[in-house]
């Protein structure tokens, strides 16, 4: 049953109070999200230099036309796609496994939650600096792998090889955010009534069948939330790639769109072109989010 927006009586009062409480958020988002989005869209139609005091030239869609022909920009699309696919899928799968592992523990649940979550509270800069030390040719990374594989003296070139540097950024990002999404899955798992699991087990379901036929379908809203959030985070990745390139890693393999935007604006002073890139990234994120919701939309499961 649908309610009209303005009604008399209690519903009207509720609506007014709802509006009152929402206004601060609307103002906040208007100022810090919508305004920059529209400004970026507007700026993307101009040839504008960051330091110039001259009025910018209106060039319509030329910035977009340039980007669509630019091999550098397509390389950024490739780098972003590789990073996103290589990071968000493992994050979703591993955090689901970890969440199940933690929930199934009878003891030390809080300890595991804290241990896995702790990297998420570190700033990305600190994380990248820690991993730069680990990935140094004489650092812990080579030592540990060479000990495990009994391969003394092998340099795994974590930052010095085009493929390895991409894997390194994925490892760092997954390490940082795995705990965060694990906690979200744990919250989702705890909302599933224990009685449902017990009923399935009494009916003769194995642990795996319980997980596959009971847990996974009931966890679908959480899974969609985690996959959308982690995908958006991955598409926006910046600081790991930025700090790795500052540390000597080659730029081209990890020149994700955000890094390209940063360099185009700050190094090259071309704010119009950088704005066009950010608008394209915005639409990519919008399309993929819509797709994910569409693909995962189905009848709600309840038992």
């Amino acid at each position: 049953m649908k309610y009209p927006l303005f009604k008399s009586g209690i519903e009207q009062k509720k609506s007014r109070w709802g509006l009152f409480f929402v206004i601060p958020s609307i103002l906040f988002f208007s100022l810090f999200s919508f305004y920059p989005i529209f400004t970026a869209l507007y700026t993307s139609f101009f040839r504008k230099k960051l330091l110039s005091l001259q009025p910018p030239d209106f060039i319509a869609l030329q910035n977009y036309a340039y980007l669509l022909k630019s091999p550098d920009f397509w390389n950024s699309i490739r780098a972003t796609a590789v990073f996103t696919i290589g990071t968000f899928i493992p994050i979703v799968i591993l955090s689901l496994i970890l969440a199940n592992f933690i929930v199934s523990r009878k003891r030390f649940q809080q300890f595991f939650q804290m241990a896995y979550y702790s990297p998420a509270v570190l700033s990305s800069v600190v994380v990248a600096v820690i991993w730069l030390l680990i990935f140094d040719p004489r650092g812990l990374g080579n030592q540990v792998l060479n000990f495990l594989f009994n391969s003394p003296g092998v340099d795994h070139k974590f930052l010095a090889n085009s493929i390895m540097v991409q894997i390194s950024t994925m490892v760092v990002y997954s390490w940082k955010y795995l705990g965060y999404f694990t906690i979200i899955f744990i919250v989702g798992l705890t909302t599933i009534p224990q009685s449902t699991h017990e009923a399935a087990l009494i009916d003769g379901a194995s642990r795996w069948q319980d997980f596959y036929y009971i847990t996974l379908p009931l966890l679908k809203p959480t899974t969609v939330l985690v996959s959308v959030m982690s995908m958006l985070q991955c598409l926006k990745t910046f600081s790991t790639q930025y700090l790795f390139t500052q540390g000597g890693a080659p730029m081209a393999p990890i020149n994700v769109i955000t890094l390209n935007i940063y360099h185009t604006a700050i190094r090259d002073h071309r704010i119009g072109r950088a704005s066009a890139m950010s608008v394209i990234l915005f639409f990519i994120m919008l399309i993929f989010t819509w797709l994910q919701f569409r693909v995962s939309r189905s009848e709600e499961v309840s038992y």
Partner: peptide
């Protein structure tokens, strides 16, 4: 700055890639 970046990419590509 952008020219320096292009030289950097050239050197990195022969040294590392």
């Amino acid at each position: 700055a952008i020219i320096q970046q292009h030289i950097r990419e050239a050197v990195e590509s022969v040294m590392l890639a």
